[in-house]
């Protein structure tokens, strides 16, 4: 297992290099640059700006310089904010991580609960209710859900705040977490239901019941654990997506997360921030997948890595 982990970690280096190279080339290939504005800048201003940010050098020199800096852990400067990209990402990451983890917990607990309830009440009202909630959750765009939630719970009832994020302050935590987590919750609910239904139909479950085992023991010890493999498969990517921020949810609640930076960096051609956020997301997704692979082995003794 240790060798497997080391090998996978080492693999991230060429993966990140490939992503950095492709992103760098694409970024410079798309039309429009960081200094293309409505109010066009005079030629000398543009040249001074390009010089300031090293964009006056040939592309290959910029590329080599970027990789050299990257190797030292320097992601460069944001051309729009004039601040180090690492600082901007770390500020946003703190918030996105808190929001993402909270939403992940909500999505996992709520989704699995709904899936379990649906599976244990197959073709009965509990099943219909679970499927209904899962369908609504997966079909409603989160910006619409966020708006609905804010209008009902903030504007009408005054129970929660519209703006910002603050850990352990329920007025600021609940709506962004629910709005962000509802879609993955619906997805988890459907996977859980399907997986549980399959497991509950297995012979060993029937045997356990025949032996008079308590229902809770059958569900918790024999069904849930064996139904976890497909659920774990989706939890890794879901975790990665949630903790890397959501432009829509962060904008809807005026939260300074890293997701907002990613989108605004692209639209403003902030080269440093585009590269930084892309590599950061790649890193998170790579490690989330690695974590899932390790969890497979924990949950299923048949899985072994050489």
């Amino acid at each position: 297992m240790t060798a497997f982990i080391i090998r996978r970690v080492l693999w991230t280096i060429p993966v990140l290099w490939a992503i950095a190279t492709v992103t760098f080339l694409l970024m410079h290939a798309v039309p429009g640059g960081p200094f293309d504005r409505d109010k066009e800048l005079p030629a000398t201003v543009r040249q001074n700006l390009e010089r300031k940010y090293g964009l006056d050098k040939p592309l290959h020199e910029q590329y080599v310089q970027y990789l050299t800096n990257l190797a030292k852990g320097d992601l460069g400067i944001s051309m729009r904010q004039n601040r180090p990209v690492t600082t901007i990402i770390s500020e946003g990451l703190t918030v996105s991580l808190q929001l993402g983890v909270t939403a992940f917990i909500f999505a996992t607990v709520f989704g699995m609960s709904m899936g379990l309830i649906a599976a244990l009440n197959h073709n009965r009202p509990g099943d219909y209710a679970g499927v209904f909630v899962a369908t609504v959750g997966s079909s409603m765009p989160n910006f619409i859900l966020a708006t609905f939630l804010v209008i009902i719970f903030s504007v009408q009832l005054g129970w929660t705040d519209v703006l910002g994020w603050e850990m352990f302050n329920p007025r600021k935590m609940i709506l962004p977490s629910v709005a962000l987590g509802i879609l993955p919750a619906a997805y988890i609910a459907r996977i859980t239901r399907a997986s549980m239904l399959e497991v509950l139909g297995q012979d060993y479950i029937r045997t356990a019941r025949a032996k008079g085992l308590a229902e809770w023991a059958i569900i918790l010890r024999h069904s849930v654990k064996n139904a976890m493999i497909p659920i774990l498969t989706v939890l890794g990517p879901i975790f990665a997506i949630l903790v890397t921020g959501s432009f829509i949810i962060e904008t809807s609640f005026a939260i300074n997360g890293v997701g907002r930076h990613f989108v605004s960096a692209i639209s403003s051609r902030d080269y440093g921030l585009i590269m930084g956020t892309t590599l950061f997301f790649a890193l998170i997704i790579t490690f989330a997948n690695l974590a899932v692979d390790i969890l497979y082995a924990v949950v299923d003794p048949r899985v072994r890595y050489g």
């Binding site: 609960s113 309830i117 009440n121 719970f153 129970w159 929660t160 705040d161 329920p170 007025r171 609940i174």
Partner: peptide, 21 residues
Amino acid sequence: YLLLSMVAIGALVALAACGGD
């Protein structure tokens, strides 16, 4: 199970209502 889940969600929202501003 269903009721418990609903109560938990309700409690979560109620908690928000009681939070400080």
